[in-house]
Amino acid sequence: MTSTTPEKRLTTSAMIASFADPGQRTTSAPFGHALNRLAEQRPEVVGLSADLAKYTDMHVFRDAHPDRFFQMGMAEQSLLGTAAGMAEVGLVPFASTYSVFATRRAYDFLCLDIAEPGLNVNVVGALPGLTTGYGPSHQATEDLAILRGCPGLTVVDPCDSVDIEQAVPALADHPGPTYLRLLRGAVPTVLDEYDYRFELGKAAELRTGRDVVLISTGLMTMRALQAAARLEADHVDVAVLHVPTIKPLDTEAVLRAARTDRLVVTLENHTVVGGLAEAVASTLAFAGATTRVVPIALPDEFLAAGALPTLHDRYGLSTDAVVARVRGELGGGTAPRWVPEPAPATA
């Protein structure tokens, strides 16, 4: 499992880890600033956090609207119960914590106090999937699997700062409960280079291509776009269908994308169980389509702790890993398992 040799390796630096590539264009705290803009138009919008305002970009809202921010302490069940109570009385709460705590710890409250009455509560979960090297306690690898099973809940997995900025007002406008997989801090800015607008419940084709279609969600859309550009150099024509809303799924767009003779690959920052891959696969099967789906997703395991780039390579989410996987699938026969380079020997 682990070695005892004391040698310098990449370090976790868990709390500041960012999945942005070095030198990539980023936007600072897009969620906090979008919430501030929304709050100026809608006085009923309020913010809550469970001792994680600073770590979910909610501090931006807290500092701008101290009278509309409610600190609930590190008590996630109470956080979501409180948000439900506020919505019952007519406020539109955005409640933030880490995804693991919103789903694992407080799911009963999300399900019964928020979703069952169909309240306009917007749950905001940071560190979705594998976005921290801190280990299973902080890696929300199965949040989509849990929440897809919740009736009436809208689930959004944004790709970048553009998605987040446009999703925030859309989530508030949506009358029912929502869950946003938050990307925080310095968030990559990618989608402004495309003819794209976030639309709740809608998938968007960001690139067309004849050989392969990558159906992706969340930050994996960024990786899909990078992989598509790299494969283009090899004369492989790759389409990218971005699916920011996981539930309700844009099944028409998925079926349209899959009903061709292209290789269909799904990409998600989530376990292969119960996320986008299975949502797409069931959509196809339920419609009688027999297309094979190649899932790029996290394995059905508790993941390791470590530096984020190392882990993204190891678990197949890095652009290199995606490119290798697609090439392997196109090469026919069994795809070679992606084996990452050993981590560079720097601290």
Partner: peptide, 12 residues
């Protein structure tokens, strides 16, 4: 090795 890749001493 604290907090380094492959260490027995993860940050958490």
């Amino acid at each position: 090795t604290y907090g380094s890749d492959g260490s027995r001493l993860p940050m958490s």
